[in-house]
Nucleic acid binder design. Structure first.
Length: 455
RNA sequence: GGCUGGAUGGCAGAGUGGUUAUGCACCGGCCUGCAAAGCCGGCUACAGCGGUUCGAUUCCGCUUCCAGCCUCCA
């Protein structure tokens, strides 16, 4: 498999340090509000990467953290008048629910920052001892000047960064680029006692600590949103590398592109933040997942009014094919077609993989030979599995068993209509079909009788 | 200002130095009582200007436009 590494700006073959235990860390959410589509993208993308890696490396250890200590959480708690822990718990739960709807499998480990404060304090002390950090006015800051390779990931020069600085530099910083490892907490804010007084961790340190705790000093893959390249990941590199005496922190850096909404950046000030839970009212989670995978993960994805509907219709077609294959056996051990594998092995090219999947569906729709149909069904299901799609029963996808539909009535109406057709009373037959259509039910007459689906 | 990455058909979105992406929508045909689904075909796409080349959407340069990051936003 070849992956594009942000650090080298090149696609390179992925060769794990230890094929028995491939290590991947992805920056998870800060739990201060409901997940939006931009949070969903990395979750889905790296879920697919984990699935694909596991095909070759079953010993993959995938860690995705929850950052449950952060000033944004504190702010949300103050605004809503609830306890900070309650905010974190509430949105962690919501995050899990939303991702489950999108077919995202849980990572192997999901550490929470607040469980690692002792280790965070330990790493900070270590950095101070080694001369990479210093305490000032209750804060502890990382000294970027002590790490000459700072800026390597984001391709930034420290001098140049200063020229473009938009923010006032805190007076306790030795260097404007220094960032906070630890900061003091007031009485009402969550805090832990430390050698520098009661306080809480800064933003970046928790990921360095959790990654090292579970995956060791060097990890194979580290992923996250494109915006995290600077400063978050740049700072993680500096901290981790310095704390571990120069040991390589991450071998492959992967970053997913942003989701824009109608060509604009999604932001609270523009009021165009698309929450996963709201999108789930418009379409099934699987359609959202497909929409996310329809673009290459590194490219920006523009979410327009049409995006979800297109994905939904495409899934309709795919499930239609699976439904027509319900008479043949699915072979769970079937191998993935090479074209499909090649696409995913090429820096996780999901659009190309989806094209392969569509091609299999077309073949399945064309052929009548039953062993060939069974083979294609198995291939489609295995491809779907790798992408986290097409795993439900087509009947379920098309709405049978849905609570808001009266199945018995639908079936009775279909019987009525077929009786009318038998009697060549097409006027009545069409009238019944119209009634079903009003209920949101579409009818399909086939050689094996009439079937229906949610329209 | 600095650093990245983009500009592909009605829409979404891959890819390639010369041959079909794929999907959605639309149009025509087949099938069907009619539809739907499916199948077959169509819809003459690669921002602009130069250069390299037998040949460029694909390589190089320039221009225009767009997006992201520049200390706590996935």
């Amino acid at each position: 498999m070849h992956l594009y590494n942000t650090l080298t700006r090149n696609k390179a073959e992925f060769v794990p340090r230890d094929p028995e235990r491939v290590t991947m860390y992805v920056c998870g959410p800060t739990v201060y509000s409901y997940a939006h589509i931009g949070n969903a993208r990395p979750a889905v993308v790296f879920d697919v990467l984990a699935r694909v890696l596991r095909l070759e490396f079953p010993g993959l250890c995938y860690v995705r953290n929850i950052t449950d200590i952060d000033d944004k959480i504190n702010l949300a708690a103050a605004e809503k008048g609830v306890a900070i822990s309650e905010i974190a718990a509430r949105y962690t739960r919501a995050y899990h629910q939303d991702l489950a709807e999108l077919g995202v499998l849980p990572p192997d480990v999901e550490p929470r920052a607040t469980d690692y404060v002792d280790s965070i304090i330990e790493m900070i002390s270590n950095l101070i001892d080694k001369g990479h950090a210093y305490a000032a006015e209750g804060h502890v800051l990382f000294s970027v000047a002590s790490y000459p390779r700072y800026g390597e990931l984001s391709h930034r020069d420290r001098e140049e960064m200063l020229a473009g600085a938009r923010v006032e530099v805190a007076p306790y910083k030795n260097d404007p680029g220094d960032f906070v490892l630890w900061k003091p907490s007031t009485e009402e804010l969550p805090g832990w006692s430390s050698p520098w007084g009661r306080g809480r961790p800064g933003w970046h340190i928790e990921c360095s600590v959790m990654a090292a705790s579970h995956l060791g000093e060097t990890i194979d893959i580290h992923g996250g949103g494109h915006d995290l390249i600077f400063p978050h990941h740049e700072n993680e590199i500096a901290q981790s590398t310095c704390a571990h005496d120069g040991t390589t922190f991450v071998r492959y850096w992967l970053h997913n592109g942003f989701v824009n909404v109608n060509s604009e950046k999604m932001s609270k000030s523009l009021g165009n933040v698309l929450l996963v839970r709201n999108l789930l009212k418009e379409a099934p989670g699987e359609a959202i997942r497909l929409a996310l995978l329809n673009a290459h993960y590194r490219a920006p994805l523009d979410w327009s009014d049409d995006t979800l509907a297109q994905a939904k219709r495409r899934l309709d077609g795919l499930y239609q094919t699976l439904r027509s294959l319900s008479d043949v056996q699915d072979e769970p051990q079937a191998e993935l077609p090479s074209g499909f594998i090649d696409a995913l092995d090429d820096d996780l090219n999901t659009p190309r993989a989806l094209a392969e999947l569509s091609s299999l569906a077309r073949q399945a729709n064309t052929t009548t030979e039953s062993s060939q149909r069974a083979f294609l069904k198995s291939s489609i299901k295995r491809c779907g599995e790798a992408l986290g799609l097409l795993q439900q029963d087509p009947a379920r996808w098309f709405g049978e068993g849905a609570k808001d539909l009266d199945i018995a009535l639908i079936e009775q109406l279909i019987l009525d209509r077929n009786a009318a057709r038998e009697a060549k009373d097409y006027g009545k037959a069409d009238k019944v079909r119209g009634r079903l259509a009003d209920m949101g039910v579409a009818i399909e007459d086939g050689p094996e009788g009439t079937r229906w689906r949610r329209s």
